[in-house]
Amino acid sequence: MLGQSDPAVSNGKKAKRRWAELAPSWLALGMNFPTLICFVLILAYPIFFAGYLSFHDVGVRELRSGEYSFSGFANYITLFSDPVFWKSLKNTVLFVIISVSLEVVIGLAVALVINEHRIKLSKLTKFLILVPWAVPPIVNGFLWAFIFNTQFGYLNRLLYQMGFIEEQVIWLGNPSTAFMAIVIAYVWRTVPFNILLYHAALQGIPDQLYEAAELDRATAWEKFRYITLPLLRPIIAVTLILRTTFAFMIFDEIFAITQGGPGNDTWVAAWYTYKTSFNPPFDIGVGAASAYVLALIVGVVAIAYVRYVYTKVEY
């Protein structure tokens, strides 16, 4: 029966109509249709609309009526002459620099620790790495708000029990400690991501390199300096760019821990936009302008990222 064309089967096949296949471009269009709608409706259109709003006089009344009067650069002028905006921007940049550096340094250190497969405990540590990442940002905010709370916070309790302090320290009432509290909370939540990437990269370094270095009488530091670090450079660059764009958008921790306080000492760019747009007096035009400034800054970093990571390989 093998080889002999089975009449029943062949007839069945003959009877079936033969189709030319859908051209790849049409198939792609069909398969991407929902995605394209989402991109346009949720991403592209809103981005342009935000730009549009930033050049118009928009308040609550205009939002209701849907009629916006053109105001030129008025929103941007208001924005740039607002000292709080500049303060927010300065805080944001400072926050980005400090938190991203901490993420890289802590991330590297922890990655090296969990990469040591000869120590059994490293397995447990590796298993727990993503725990902070699992905590919702807003919960993370309240969590650290609790720790840094003056009256009943755990940091004060701990320091008192260890004999470092006699009175309650007002962590969140002081601009610099409040700022650091936000940095710590944020970095704690986000550093697992860096650890993960560095760990993955470390695992990609062949053992033979270290063995060769050993034969060349390299010390542990020299091995790190001349083998590990250069080979991790690409991934460090990736995390630097990626984490920078995300750190620029810090919001949840600010919301939960300080609400921008004390005074406006911990205002950041996203918080500025939120406060101006969604709180009285609802300066939506100015909010849109500030959001756009933030988007431009992030956009520059984003383009650097795309060029760095995604241009080498074609899809």
């Binding site: 096949k13 033969r18 189709w19 030319a20 296949e21």
Partner: peptide, 9 residues
């Protein structure tokens, strides 16, 4: 030429 692979037997 224009018949889908699956229909070529």
């Amino acid at each position: 030429n224009d018949i889908a692979p699956r229909d070529r037997d």
